[in-house]
Amino acid sequence: MARRVAVAHTVTATVAAWIVGFVIFFPILWMAITSFKTELEAFNTPPSFLLFQWTTENYATVQERSNYLHHAPNSIIIAGGSTLVAMVIAIPAAWSMAFVPSRRTRDILLWILSTKMMPAVGVLVPIYLIFRDLALLDSRIGLLCILCLSNLPIVVWMLFTYFKEIPKDILEASRMDGATIGRELVYVLTPMAVPGIASTILLNVILAWNEAFWTLNLSTSEAAPLTVFIASYSSPEGLFWAKLSAASTLAIAPILVLGWFTQRQLVRGLTFGAVK
C-alpha cells in the first residue's frame, strides 16, 4: 500500500517535472522550429507545429546577409574576458568579506548590490559620453569593461555566499599547520571552492553572452557581438520572424551547448549549501 503510494508520488513528480521543463524550454524550441519555416509559414495563424515544409533557407540568407563568424568571436572575447576580469577582482573581494569581515562588511555588500537596482538606461547617456570621449565606442575592450562592471556585484555576491559555506575551522587548521595566507588560499580554499567558482564563471558567461542593452547601445559593427547580429533581423514591421529565429538560434547555440555539458556542475554550484 505504502509502496503504491510512493510509486504514485514518483510518477506524479516525474510527470510534473517534465511538464514544467517543457514549458520552460518551449520558447527555445519554438524559436528553433520557426527558424526552419518559410517567412510566410512563420506568420501563419494558427501556427503549425511540426507539419510544414521544413527549409534551411533562412540560415543561408542570414549567413549571406551578415557574417556570423565576425560576431561570434566578439561574443566570446567579451563574455569570456569580462568574466575573467570579474573573477580576478571578485575572488579576493569575496574572500576578504567572507573570512575577515569587518563591522561594515554587510553594508558594503548591500552597497555593491545597490548599483544593480538602478535601471541601466538611467546611466546610458553619461556612459555613452564617457565611452565617446575615451574612444571606446564600438570597441571590444569597452564592452568587456562595461559588462564586467555590470556583472561584478552578482559575481561578488555569489562567491561570497559560496565562501561563507566553507568552515572557517578548516582554514584555521591550515594556519596551525604552518600555511601562510597565500598557501592557505591556493592549497585549501580554492580547491574547496571549485564548484562555487565554476558555477559563478558559467553563470557570468551566460549573462554576458546574452547581455543586450549595453552591447546594442555601445557597439555597431567592429566590436558587435551576436546580440547585435540578432537585433539586425528585428525590423519594426516584424516581417522576418523566421530569419530572426534563425539568427537567434545561431547566436545561442554555443551557450546552449556549453550549458548542456556543464549542467551537472552548474546545478551543483547553484544549489551548493542548500543541501549540506
Binding site: P167, D169, I170, E172, A173, S174, R175, M176, D177, G178, A179, T180, V188, P191, M192
Partner: peptide
C-alpha cells in the same frame, strides 16, 4: 607571532580535516 609560526598544533572539535 602568527599561528603558523608558533610551533603549536591544534585538534578541533569539528576535526577540520581538509575534505579534498
Amino acid at each position: 607571532v602568527p599561528p603558523a609560526r608558533r610551533g603549536l598544533s591544534m585538534v578541533f572539535q569539528s576535526y577540520a580535516l581538509y575534505p579534498h
